[in-house]
Computed example of a mutant assay.
Amino acid sequence: MRHRKLTAALGCTEMRVNTVTLDPGESTAPHAHDRQEEVYVALDGGHVRIDGTKYEVPAGGLVRCGPDAVRSVHNDTADGSQTWLMFGAPPLGTVDDFGEYRMPEE
């Protein structure tokens, strides 16, 4: 998984911007943000899981994740990487951390 933090490079002050590229079989860790809303753009399509429900997202599709929702993105294909653009607001934490990022208890 490749994670690029773009917030500082873009000079953003009111949101955070990242890209995540997943190789086949990879996924991000399920997590939530206490006060941060996120919007994901599936550049190549893929799957997102929100509060335990899995959704297929077509290429160019958008997904909103509300605060407190446990979310993760998945590349369930056997070949080809998938890239997601991720926008978060308000910009909690710093560019070096995820701000109020928490992992759900299993």
Rank of each mutant, 00 (worst) to 15 (best):
S72T: 03
L43I: 10
M1W: 02
N18Y: 08
L43S: 07
T19C: 09
M1Q: 07
A9N: 09
T7V: 02
A8Q: 14
L92H: 05
H74Y: 12
L85I: 14
D23W: 02
P104W: 06
F98D: 15
W84I: 00
R49N: 04
Q36E: 15
Y40K: 11
M86K: 04
D44N: 14
P67I: 01
D97M: 10
V73E: 07
R64L: 04
Y40L: 15
Y40E: 02
S72A: 13
D76Y: 01
H3F: 13
P91I: 04
N18R: 08
R71Q: 15
T13A: 09
C65M: 04
T77E: 15
D68K: 10
A42L: 10
N75I: 08
A59S: 14
T77G: 15
T53V: 13
W84Y: 13
E26P: 08
V41Q: 10
T19D: 11
L85M: 13
D97T: 14
D79V: 05
L62I: 12
M103R: 11
H3K: 12
G11I: 01
L92Y: 04
D44G: 12
S72N: 08
A69W: 01
G61W: 09
T13C: 02
D34A: 08
E26I: 06
D76W: 00
E105L: 09
A69M: 10
R2N: 15
P30W: 03
R4F: 09
W84R: 12
D44T: 06
G66H: 02
M1P: 04
M103W: 01
N18V: 02
E38F: 00
R102D: 01
A9R: 15
R4T: 04
D51W: 06
E26H: 07
G52R: 04
G60E: 09
E100T: 10
E37T: 15
T53F: 05
V63K: 10
E38T: 15
F87D: 00
P90L: 06
F87V: 15
G52D: 04
Y55R: 14
A42P: 03
R49L: 01
E37I: 02
H47G: 00
N75L: 11
I50D: 05
V17D: 00
R2I: 10
P30L: 03
V48M: 05
H33K: 08
P24W: 12
T7G: 07
H3A: 07
E56G: 11
V41M: 12
G25C: 07
V39G: 01
R102E: 10
H74P: 06
E26M: 06
